[in-house]
Amino acid sequence: MDIIESYLSEIGRFLPESRRDELVTEVRDDLLGELEALVEERGGELTEQDQRDVIGRFGHPFKVAARYQPTKYLIGPELYPAFRQTLRTVFVLAIVLWMAVTVIGYIVSGDSLGPFQLLGRFIELSIWVVAVVILVFLAIENSGEKLRWYEDWDPKSLSTGVLNVIRRSDVITNLISEGVFLLWWNDVLSFSRWMPEDAVIELSLSPVWDTFFWPLNLAIGVAFVLHFYVLVRGVWQRATLLTEVVTNVALLGMVFALLVNGPLLVIEVMPAEHLQQVVQNTVRMILLVLGGFVLWDVWLAVRGFRGIQLLKAKR
């Protein structure tokens, strides 16, 4: 095989099989055109060094193959800043949530992990997070949706949002508590060993809670998605504040419904009426505290609204 064919064969290795013959033929045509011109100029046969010089001007086979194909990005320059920001946010969130679940698991169940297990889980989680975010952005890059986002962008979206910068610590706290709750509520995370093994009583939630299985999943799920979105955007806007208020009012309704319904717990060991009363009151106290937190969230959202109104009035 002469040097030209060897070069073309190398280029072919970097080309897609479906277009390989076509593109190699074209590069051959271009190359031979250059060599012919050199023969004409020299008035005789070319040496191997002449051929090498012409090939050298064309460049490395990989570069030549790349030039003859459309430019393709895994994640292109337009999407890259959003990709980096999302990856960072999701990564921090996933790690913090995982740490919270691990710590809670250790406190309530005594499950502990050795340093190598911890490192292994951390690496595994990191790989999952990076893989999922890359796959999502890869899909966006190839769907062409990103262009519609940019084209449909309206400066109106800046009018109020930038004025209500979030407190990251608040939003992250919300996300962690909602994440842990969702994992527990859906049996992904178990606190079955909350009571000591030799306990004389066994506590479980009464059937009253079953009614709230999907409503709570929906409300807390919406809150989780909302807080994640707000964390990524970095600002509260009208729509997100409204969703925050609606979600919290719904949660407040559920808390109230739970408070007036009873019994909330089932205690397996009998007789234990007096103990049931004590535990019942404890749970009611917890629900009251939760209600207080929810009310605080509503207050923050309302305050955010008032902030927007005041700033609008100032303009």
Binding site: E26, E34, K63, R67, Y68
Partner: peptide, 11 residues
């Protein structure tokens, strides 16, 4: 114009 620029451009 360099070969590596012109030929892919024509294509």
């Amino acid at each position: 114009v360099e070969e590596g620029t012109l030929y892919p451009l024509i294509r």
